[in-house]
Design a protein around this nucleic acid. Structure first.
Length: 468
RNA sequence: GGCGUGGUGCCCAAGUGGCCUAAGGGAGUGGUCUGCAAAACCAUUAUUCACCGGUUCGAAUCCGGUCCACGCCUCCA
């Protein structure tokens, strides 16, 4: 089956053909670790996770590199303001970031290179650019990339520099550049940087932001690699600058497929702190939303469409996932029984095929989810008419585990499998009450259990207890 | 000013020339099951795809215009 991906630089979907057969090199612009990631950051990371998982699902072996920007204006500014050494300051947010990745069930990148561990590589790359005449030193010692020297500049974002507004935003410190649009490769040390600097052939200073992605992607994935992803806002200037740096230095194509994730808005409005709709994962957890539901919301819209993130959607997602969990419990009960039934592998296969085809078509998640829901519905019908047997149930469960290797939102095992004694006791009491047809008491106990966070469903085989 | 995206039911969201009298989910309503619930099952909720005009045998899908929302144009995911 051929995989089709939307390649931003072509503005079209095209067949995905990796450089090396079934191996894929994937570079992802990671976070700047100066604060907690917000839900918008997380959306694009989740998109990249879905991309990676989909490729693996389709049989590719993926090497993903996600950089951590732990040196830039913001990290320096905030660490100095907090009076904490940069390294300690960024470590805190690196840790927080990895916590988020775990909570959202990421298939983590193979390499998470930190910028500060690759200063040497960046200096080498800058040297090459200076030697080749693409970069120059300004009066203050900083090194700038001269975009006028790279004729293809603007090919990704389709920006013609001649048409751009100019003059309005020139700040005094930019007068040292040959052209306003030139960007810094190496920033000469200033007092405001404190003791955050490295020695270089151009004196002490620190790297610019764009050079880190060029240097690190090259180191781990080679001069040309398959896929580069990021948020749409990174397209210009960041990705455009990466192309300029990498292609000028190496003389070969930088990236074959560019993929960009759209923005996220919250409750129909742009996310901002002043509107009070600025959420981190922590904020949402405090409000009582679980991470699977949040992940569900983030993956449930196509990555190239603006996603309207709402708390209502989180609630709905929780509802959906709860139904799936109870579906899995029922399936498991049948799978563990010795019930005979019809063979349904044809149904399972056709839904699996639909899912696979949908995801292969530029990650058409909506169609893929329709296939998932379709199999659930078909299976439920068989359960309702009592013809789903043990083997079939096991087959269906396997199929959902396969779906989940891409989606990573389902719970197959009951969390906290061990039900507290207190709960078991209450359930027993309730059973006794029910036997005695004392339904008033039975209902009171059920409410009580609900308050304690457990739900009881009465089935022919007895009560089914599950965590809410 | 330049470049670009989108407006589909109560909400979310696929579909981009005929299989669309528009997939799927959530929510609602009626029914089956249940002591009652929950879950599940059955039925039901857009002759219509922002608006106006055009192309076509045929348009949610193509073209033109209008309105609305949004993004990028130097470090913001």
């Amino acid at each position: 089956m051929s995989v089709r991906l939307y390649n931003t630089i072509k503005r079209a979907k095209e067949e995905f053909i990796p450089i090396d057969d079934k191996k894929v090199g994937l570079y992802t612009c990671g976070p700047t670790v100066y604060n907690y990631a917000h839900i918008g950051n997380l959306r694009s990371f989740v998109f990249e996770d879905i991309l990676k998982r989909t490729l693996k699902f389709l049989g590719y072996k993926v090497t993903q590199v996600m950089n951590l920007t732990d040196i830039d204006d913001k990290t320096i500014r905030d660490s100095i303001a907090a009076n904490i050494p940069l390294r300690d300051y960024t470590q805190k947010y690196k840790d927080a970031f990895f916590e988020d990745l775990d909570k959202l069930r990421f298939d983590k990148a193979e390499v998470f290179p930190a910028a500060t561990d690759h200063i040497k590589e960046m200096i080498e790359l800058i040297k090459t650019l200076v030697d080749k005449g693409y970069a120059y030193q300004s009066e203050d010692g900083s090194i700038y990339y001269s975009i006028a020297k790279f004729s293809a500049y603007g090919k990704l974002a389709r920006i013609d520099m001649k048409n751009q507004r100019s003059g309005v935003r020139i700040k005094t410190d930019e007068y040292e550049k040959d052209s306003v649009a030139d960007f810094a490769l190496w920033k000469a040390w200033t007092e405001g940087d404190g003791d955050n600097f490295w020695e270089s052939p151009w004196g002490k200073g620190r790297p610019g932001w764009h050079i880190e992605c060029s240097a690190m992607s090259m180191k781990y994935l080679g001069k040309t690699f398959d896929i580069h992803t990021g948020g749409v806002d990174n397209m210009f200037p960041h990705h455009e600058d990466e192309i300029a740096q990498s292609e000028a230095a190496n003389g070969v194509k930088f990236v074959n497929y560019w993929m960009h994730c759209e923005y996220l808005i919250v409750e129909g409005q742009k996310m901002s702190k002043s509107l009070g709709n600025f959420f981190t994962l922590r904020d949402l957890e405090e409000k009582g939303y679980n991470c699977n539901a949040i992940r569900w919301v983030l993956i449930s819209a196509h990555y190239r469409r603006t996603l309207n993130f709402t708390l209502e959607a989180c609630k709905q997602a929780q509802e959906t996932l709860k139904n799936f969990t109870s579906f899995f419990i029922r399936l498991k009960e049948i799978a563990d029984s010795d019930k005979k039934g019809d063979d349904i592998s044809a149904t399972v296969n056709s839904h699996m095929e639909k899912f696979s085809e949908a995801m292969s078509d530029d990650l058409n998640i909506s169609e893929a989810l329709a296939a998932v829901f379709g199999l659930q519905k078909e299976t439920n019908k068989l359960i309702a008419s009592n013809i789903l047997g043990q083997n079939a149930a096991a087959t269906v469960l396997d199929a959902f585990k396969k779906f989940d290797s891409v989606l990573a939102v389902f719970e197959f095992e009951q969390k906290g499998n061990d039900i507290p004694e207190e709960i078991t006791k209450l359930v027993e009491e309730r059973q006794t009450a029910r036997k005695n047809k004392d339904f008033a008491t039975s209902d009171i106990i059920r409410d009580r259990l609900k308050d304690l966070g457990w739900s009881v469903e009465d089935t022919p085989k007895g009560p089914r207890i599950s965590k809410i």
